[in-house]
Nucleic acid binder design. Structure first.
Lengths: 159, 159
DNA sequence: ATTGAAATGGAGGGATT
DNA sequence: AATCCCTCCATTTCAAT
């Protein structure tokens, strides 16, 4: 009923082996195919084929190193809640597209509730963070209100 | 002024090559050492030594596959703001330690402001999300208040 | 400390059962 | 889907600068 009529049944064909592969690779993205195959209990060639298929269908989006932000000269992190002034599809989509390209952007969450977006950003200093908000968000006519919360500490979950 | 007197000057010795390696591996965690060496402009052996050093000093925390949550049977994501009833070090540390082990936990942010924590979680369904909040947060005496915001959409940043 | 080359080991691909 | 085998390439070590 919209312009994108679900192209494919989303992951209906994934079995336990596939999910095990996803879990292992999420935990250790550099796990070699041989070791991965052993862990999930299939032959290496099968495992390779599965992993490729998971790439292809979009279940695996990519591989990334987890880097200590301080090591890149961006020791500060913040969560910025953003309330938009309008909520039509075009405004929301445009804001998302702009946001992901902003310098220091880690993740963009479109959320339900009073606020529309939560932005996870990194910055070199308190000044840089302030400038980020002023230069990229406060000036944006689509943005009605922002609230910045400094991140004291971040930890990765295990589940 | 506390019990941990900065063990090491944090990343003072990182040069442009190191930061380039971090940036490349953050963008593509499976980039082979050869290709990585070429991109940052050093010999493979040098690159390998650098990368290992970056492991060793904690600048690289690990490698992870980015998996579509829907593929793991956890199509719902939420940000849960948590306000604690007390703010002494022991309570806060204990809450963090417990949180990271909760099922479906993606990330735990300890933030400044009215709320103390923001939890990024995944769930199989709205019911499962409700149960998560009721069973793991609402019953926790350290938790005073929670607010759950469903994530409509998430995007990775590029900066 | 970095480099280049040489040796080791593992990954990738195909054919067969 | 799994096992074997073969080829190829990346990683690693080492000597030299």
């Amino acid at each position: 009923m919209s312009s994108s009529p679900n192209p494919a049944p989303p992951y209906a064909s994934l079995d336990d082996t596939d999910r095990a592969i996803l879990a292992e690779l999420a935990a250790d993205g550099r796990l070699p195919n041989n070791a991965l195959a052993e862990r999930v209990g299939v032959a290496p060639s099968t495992c390779l084929a599965r992993t490729r298929a998971l790439h292809g269908c979009g279940a695996i989006r990519g591989f990334h190193a987890e880097v200590d932000p301080a090591a890149m000269g961006l020791p500060l992190q913040a969560l910025i809640s953003v309330r938009l002034s309008a909520h039509d599809r075009a405004v929301v989509a445009a804001f998302r597209a702009r946001s992901v390209r902003l310098p220091g952007m880690v993740a963009v969450f479109h959320v339900a509730g009073a606020d529309d977006y939560v932005l996870h950003v990194r910055a070199a200093s308190a000044d840089a963070l302030r400038d980020f908000v002023l230069d990229h968000l406060a000036v944006d006519p689509a943005v009605q209100h922002t609230q910045t919360s400094l991140i004291f500490e971040q930890a990765r979950g295990l589940g």
